[in-house]
Every structure is written in structure tokens, then in C-alpha cells.
Nucleic acid binder design. Structure first.
Length: 560
DNA sequence: CTAGGGTTAG
């Protein structure tokens, strides 16, 4: 068999996944030219065997075969990912030495390689600019993707527009990258324009494009548009399902579970993370436990994001012991893991534990940010640890050089006011570097009611009215403060202005799901005869809650 | 006879 024939055979075997047979044949060859080496190398690479591909490259160099432009672009793409930053420079040097560093395929691969590191984007751009008219569609998309990857989405999108102006035909690749950039900066307008272009050029039959469109609409809060694309596409893969489920987990967690039921593919780690966060929003503990079981069976528990979602889910379901168990078992933790656990302690009333965990976090060398301090201060607020909370606020500014944002100020106002230190809360509002919003005043108003402080309540309510005159609960709250302080004249006046607004306080609705039926209740819903039985029903329900909750999940995971 | 770019979760 000639060398040419053997090489053809090798690539053919590799393209059908028979890499081992290809390798056996390769090893039998009495001599191997560049083409043969490259065929073997790219055969490994296209089958995801990057280590083997790199090994072939090393042996090839050692054997004295000179890599050409095919070899270099193959080896560059083979080491995409974690080892790309280390390989970009040396391989670039080889390309220069072989005189192929300006060949489009090589340059495109180099752009991608350099842009795999944030600091390399500038080098990538230099290569891109040097290409001049030698740019291909892939050069553009690699460069745009490089920007989008490192938080320069706007620059990427500008380059995308330049590309179109230069007359480069819109490809499915460019389209999905640009759509992804729109998603990252939440630019619905541009996303919709792109959608239109997709339809015009019939690119919306491409699954990757459809998936990016669905993601874009979900992120831009257009779940219905996302759903109609999802329903309309003739073909769906796991990414399609995961994107749609992730979208629902943000705005309609029950629908996320529903979609999981309809899915025929096996859920993967991404699916289960979204489902876990849906369970967190529903406070569906039994369901969340079933998901956790599915996670353990599939050995996804080592995944960082999965662990974080589980900690969050158990915290929001009030199961702090399980949250702590998951947290403690996590092999590696990031800022989000610590924040979720601290917030979990806080929302369940464990202020001291939250404070303790914060110091463990500092001990572990994790830098706190605004979100951590927000969780921490609100933990202190719930647990009545006023001085501790106040000290964290001070240390946030003085020790960690963090400028508290509006939310943090609001949380500190809440901390002081709930503890009855209304005067100090008001002073803080007066000195904070933001215009106080209705939520800050709302915290003061609520605390004024709690501590029967008519004067402070009147002030807070007046401020809220200036910001939002239609806020009904503001008037109701103020009226009850007057009532408690026996200020009946002002009470009557407030009730009258409430009638003047002509709106009613929206009823708070609670709901409960039993099997596949949804029951809703409103507070003091005496109009419904069923509610007369509410206490009895609730009593029975609480006895059977565990069994009922798990039913739904058994349906979901019956296949596992 | 050998080479390229894209979409998913907190």
C-alpha cells in the first residue's frame, strides 16, 4: 500500500471513529510524511483525544518532520481549552519559522488561541488586523467570539456590524455568536433585528442559531417568544431543552418542571442545575431532594455550580442541615458557594452561624463583595444582631474598601430601624450617597409601625408618597400607625385619601399544589365555602405533605 | 492524501 493510500485510509477510519485501527495502520507505515502525521494528528483531535493529538505532534517534531499549515492549524485547534494559552506562543513561533504564519487557517486558529486568555485579545486583534483583505468569515467570527468571551461584547458587536458592512455574508456561526453577545448585554432590540435577518436568510433552520435565539429571548424576559421558537423548531437537542428549562426556571419554575416531564432525552448536569433552582423558587423540598438523588446517581455532585444550586435550594426550602451538608462536602467552593450558605443561614434566622461562616470565608482567602455583605447584614438584621451588622457595614467600607451600594444601605436602614433605632436609621438615610427610594423609606415606615412611632411613620409615608403616590400599602400602613397612636383625625384622613386613589390593595395569594392540581387561597377568603375547612385541610395536608410532595418527583424521575 | 469558527445552568 502506498503512503498516499494508507493516509487516505487513516483519515477515513478516524472520521468513522475507528481511531485505534487508524493508529495501528499508522504504526505499520514504514515511513511517514507530513500529510500522514497530520492525518493522524487531526484524527485524534476530531475525536476529542487532544492529549493523543498533542503527543503525535511532539513525536512528529522529534522525528524531524516539518509541520506545514495543515499541521499547525490542526494542532492549534487540538489544544483549544485549558492548555491553549501556553501553546499559542510556541506554536506561533513554529508557524513563523515554517513561513506559514500568515496563512488564513493558521491565523484564524492563532486568533482563537490567543483570545482564549483575556490578556491575549489584543494580540489576537493584531493578527486579525494584519490579515487585511486576507480575512475569511472564520477570522471575523473568531475575533468577535474572542471579544464576547472576555466581557467586551459591545466591541464584538461593533466588529460584527463592520463585518456585515464589509459585505461578508451572514453565516450561522457569526449569527449565533452575535446573538450570544446580545444575550450577554441583554440587547433585545439588536437581538430582534438579528432574528429578522435569520428569517430572511433562512438561517433559523440551523439548530445552534435557534438555540441562541431561544436563549436571547429567555434572558431578555421574552419567555413567550422563546417558547414559540421552541415549539416551532422541528429539531431539538439537549441544549434546546436545557436553554428553555433554564429560561423557565427564572420566571415560571413550575413550567420548568413540566418541561422536564416532556423531555425524552436524559437530563444532564445543566438540566438538573436549572431544575434545582426551580425547586428552590418553589420551596419544594421533597422535589428538590429527589433531584439531589438524581444528581448523586449521575455523579454530578462534584460540579461547582450544581453544588451551589443545591445549597441554595436547601436553604430556601428551610432545610439548613442539608444545605450545610452539601456545602461541607463540596470539593471546591467559590464566592457564590459561601454567599449562598451565608444567605441560607440568614434567611433561616441563624445570624450567629452566618457571622461565623463569614469569618471562615475570610480565613479561606475568599474576597467578600457587595452581595456577601448584603447577605451578612440582612442575616444580622433578621437575628437582631444590630451592633454586629453595623460593624460589618463599617468594615465593608474601611477594611475592604467596598463602597456600599443602594441595596446595602437599604439593608442597614432596615437593621437599625427594626431594632428601634429609628433616629439613627433616618440619619443614615440623610447621609447616604444615593437618593433614598421607596424601599428605603418603606423599611423605615414598617419599623415605625412596629415601634409605634407616629412622627417617623408620617415622615416616611410622606416621602414614599412623593416618590410613588399610588403605593396603596403605604396608606394602609400609615393609617394603622395613626390608629395605634389614637390619632383618629389623621386616621380618617388617610383612609379617605386611600379611597381617592380608587385602587384596592391587591390580595396576596398563596397556592398549594396537590398532585397535578393547583389550589389557591387568599387571606381571609371568607367568600369561598371551601376556606371554612381550611384549618382542617391544612392539618391533613401537613400530615401528608411528605408523600404528596414526592409524588410529582416520582413522575419526573421514574426513568432513573 | 492532511486544517477552521457557534449555542446551555447559580
Amino acid at each position: 500500500m502506498s503512503q498516499k493510500h494508507a493516509t487516505t485510509f487513516i483519515s477515513s477510519l478516524c472520521s468513522r471513529g475507528a481511531v485505534c485501527h487508524a493508529r495501528a495502520l499508522f504504526d505499520e507505515m514504514p515511513e511517514r510524511d507530513v500529510v500522514a502525521w497530520t492525518a493522524m494528528l487531526s484524527g485524534y483531535a476530531s475525536n476529542g483525544l487532544r492529549r493523543e493529538a498533542l503527543d503525535v505532534f511532539r513525536r512528529m517534531v522529534a522525528a524531524g518532520a516539518a509541520p506545514n499549515e495543515y499541521t499547525l492549524s490542526s494542532v492549534l485547534t487540538a489544544c483549544r481549552g485549558p492548555c491553549a494559552p501556553a501553546m499559542a506562543m510556541p506554536l506561533h513561533a513554529v508557524a513563523v519559522r515554517r513561513g506559514v504564519d500568515r496563512m488564513p487557517y493558521v491565523v484564524n486558529a492563532l486568533i482563537d488561541s490567543y483570545a482564549s486568555l483575556a490578556e491575549g485579545v489584543v494580540d489576537a486583534r493584531r493578527l486579525f488586523d494584519a490579515l487585511g483583505s486576507g480575512r475569511t468569515a472564520a477570522s471575523w467570527t473568531s475575533m468577535i467570539a474572542g471579544y464576547a468571551r472576555w466581557g467586551q461584547e459591545r466591541t464584538g458587536l461593533r466588529l460584527f456590524k463592520t463585518m456585515l458592512k464589509d459585505g461578508v455574508e451572514l453565516s450561522t456561526f457569526a449569527c449565533s455568536i452575535a446573538l450570544h453577545a446580545c444575550t450577554l448585554v441583554i440587547d433585545l432590540c439588536l437581538g430582534q433585528q438579528l432574528h429578522l435577518q435569520c428569517i430572511k436568510k433562512a438561517l433559523d433552520v440551523n439548530l445552534a442559531v435557534v438555540n441562541s435565539l431561544i436563549d436571547m429571548y429567555c434572558t431578555c424576559a421574552r419567555i413567550l417568544d422563546a417558547r414559540s421558537l421552541f415549539d416551532g423548531t422541528p429539531e431539538r437537542n439537549l441544549i434546546t431543552w436545557n436553554t428553555m428549562i433554564a429560561g423557565y426556571s427564572q420566571c415560571d419554575p413550575l413550567m420548568a418542571l413540566q418541561l422536564l416531564l416532556e423531555m425524552n432525552d436524559e437530563p444532564n448536569c445543566f438540566t438538573l442545575t436549572s431544575i434545582t433552582s426551580a425547586c428552590a423558587d418553589l420551596a419544594a423540598l421533597r422535589c428538590g431532594k429527589q433531584v439531589h438523588g438524581a444528581v448523586l446517581r449521575r455523579s454530578y455532585s462534584d460540579d461547582l455550580q450544581m453544588g451551589n444550586a443545591l445549597v441554595d435550594m436547601y436553604s430556601k426550602c428551610g432545610s439548613i442541615t442539608n444545605a450545610k451538608n452539601v456545602f461541607d462536602r463540596m470539593g471546591c467552593k467559590d464566592k457564590f458557594s459561601w454567599t449562598s450558605m451565608i444567605a441560607g443561614y440568614g434567611m433561616n434566622g441563624y445570624g450567629n452561624e452566618a457571622v461565623q461562616l463569614f469569618s471562615s470565608m475570610i480565613h479561606a482567602g475568599v474576597h467578600p463583595d457587595h452581595v456577601v455583605f448584603l447577605s451578612l447584614i440582612s442575616s444580622c438584621s433578621h437575628a437582631g444582631l444590630v451592633d454586629e451588622g453595623w460593624n460589618f457595614f463599617r468594615s465593608m467600607i474601611n477594611e475592604y474598601n467596598l463602597q456600599p451600594n443602594k441595596e446595602v444601605y437599604g439593608s442597614v436602614v432596615n437593621l437599625l430601624a427594626r431594632a428601634g433605632r429609628l433616629r439613627e436609621a433616618l440619619d443614615l438615610i440623610d447621609t447616604m450617597p444615593f437618593a433614598p427610594d421607596e424601599y428605603v423609606w418603606g423599611a423605615l415606615l414598617g419599623a415605625s409601625k412596629m415601634h409605634n412611632n407616629v412622627e417617623m411613620g408620617r415622615l416616611a409615608a410622606r416621602k414614599i408618597t412623593e416618590i410613588n403616590p399610588d403605593d396603596v400599602k403605604n396608606y394602609i400602613m400609615l393609617a394603622s400607625i395613626y390608629a395605634a397612636g389614637s390619632k383618629w383625625g389623621e386616621y380618617a384622613f388617610t383612609r379617605r385619601s386611600l379611597r381617592g386613589i380608587g385602587s384596592r390593595k391587591e390580595a396576596g395569594i398563596s397556592w398549594i399544589e396537590v398532585m397535578d392540581k393547583m389550589y389557591s387561597f387568599t387571606a381571609a377568603d371568607s367568600s369561598s365555602p371551601q376556606v371554612c375547612l381550611a384549618d382542617e385541610v391544612l392539618h391533613i395536608l401537613s400530615q401528608h405533605m411528605d408523600d404528596v410532595g414526592s409524588e410529582f418527583c416520582h413522575i419526573i424521575f421514574k426513568a432513573t
